[in-house]
Structure formats: C-alpha cells, structure tokens
Amino acid sequence: MSAQGVPAEEPLVGLIARRKPWYRRLPRGWPLLTVYLAVLTLFIVCGIFADWIAPHDPTDQNLISRLQGPIWQEESKPEHILGTDGLGRDTFSRLIKGSQTSLLVIATVIPGSLVLGTAVGLLAGWRRGPFDSFAMRLVEVQLAFPALLFALLIAAMLGPSLRNVVVILIVFLWAPYARLVRAEVLSLREREFVVAARTLGASDFRVMLQHLLPNVVNSVVILATLNVSTVIIAEASLSFLGAGAGPETISWGKMVAEGRDLLKIRFWLTGFPGITIMIVALVGNLLGDWLRDFLDPQLRNIQ
C-alpha cells in the first residue's frame, strides 16, 4: 500500500539529488489523477457556465419533438445530441444545467458540514468534559436518526426546495467530521508542540486554530472529497422520493426520477443522468482515495 502513498525516502532524496525535471516531480499516479481532475474541471465549468455552454435552453419545451433518442439512434434529431425528454426538452442541456444544481449543493453542503463538524470536533476533543459528551451523544442521536425520514418530514412541512435539501444534508453530514476531528485532537493534545504552546500561555482559541487545525486539515479534506459522492447520491435520492429540489430546479436525481416510468422504452432518459451521477460520484471517491494516499497514508479507514 505504501507504494501508492508518498514514498518515505522522498524528502531525503530531495535533499541530496539535484533538482529533478518537472515530469519526474509529478505525483505518483498522475495520469489517472489528470483524468480525475479533467472530469472535475468539466463538472465545475459546466456548473458555473451552464447557461452559456448549454446548446438549448434547458426549460425550452417542444411537444412535437418529444422523447427523441440520442444521436446514435434512429429517429433522432441532430440538434439534440442526447435526445429529448417527455416535454421535448433537450437532455444534454438539462444535464449541463443539472450539474449547476449538484455543484451548488456540493459547494454549500460540504463546506457547511465540514466547518460545523470540525468546529464541534475541535472543541469536543480539546475541551473534553461536558461539551464533549454532549457533542458525542448528539453524534449518536444523529446516527440513530433515520435521515431520509427526517428529510421527508421537512419536505412535508416546508415543501420541496433546494435550500431544505442543503440544510438537511448539513445536519446529517457534520457528525462524521466531528468524530474524526475529535479523535485526532485527542491524540494530538498530548503531543509536545501542543503541550508547549499551552505552557507558553497560548489561548484555547489559538491552540485550536494554530496548532490543532493544521494537523487535522488533511484528514478533513480527504473526508470532504469522499463526501462528494455521498452528497450527490443523497440529493438524487431525496429528489427521487419527491423531497428534493423544488419543481423549478433541474437536478440529475430528478431527471432519473422523471424518466423512470419510461425506463423500458426510453432507457437513456434515466441512463444519462444516472451515469452522470455515477461518474461524478466515482471521480469524487477516486480523488478522495488518491488524496488520502498522497496526504496521509495512515488514514485508510476514513469513510
């Protein structure tokens, strides 16, 4: 396994050897990494510039050219590369627009749950005492709580909307960060540099921010990357049950849900968004794995 991680001798080699040419300095596994990053970039670019990239207006209906197959099938039209849905809307454009929704959810849920969870974990691990046990009980409650049911309750209460999805996912995803960070802080707090800082009179806040935080960042970033797939799949699942994004929002999960009745005759209506969800989730996981091996080979069990 260490073969995939940072070779232990590298720093030493770096000191002695002459500066290596750039291609030798690429991280291990870079060809695959390039692919992951390319997919990720594509996803982000599509998300941000959806309105410019999409060849059609994704909400533009055309009832006459509805349910067309993708370009390689007969009875398709060249202007709709991936065909059209039940209202004649362009599937390709909707996929692109859908990436915006996914990106938005990821870009809010992951930082949100990360910040919340890390803060709780830092405090719990550093302060210990009643806050710690309270926080850990909370984590336990959260784990015992059927997240999906809670999401359905919220949707029944407030109506389906993207904002609710984001709030629900943050509420249900902060706990793993808290547990991870707390565990790390517990092992860090007795380390020399922390003890030294403490003796030198650094405030709690300072210790946590300057000494503890930098040491947990790696694992937190790895967990966050691995969470990309969780978030995407969770959003899709909520949409599938009708508790996801609101009716005006185009999302991949909703596209799967909308096309599922016609799976038999129009497989690609669910196929494309399904595969897209899979690819993005897959890349998120692979990137997370790669990061874990690169940053911290010890943390193989983060999940």
Partner: peptide
Amino acid sequence: ALVGQAMPNFW
C-alpha cells in the same frame, strides 16, 4: 467496489 459506491440505489 468503486462503481457500487457511486451508484444511487434507486437506479
């Protein structure tokens, strides 16, 4: 394993 973890279960 990778594909399995990236696949929404309704799909």
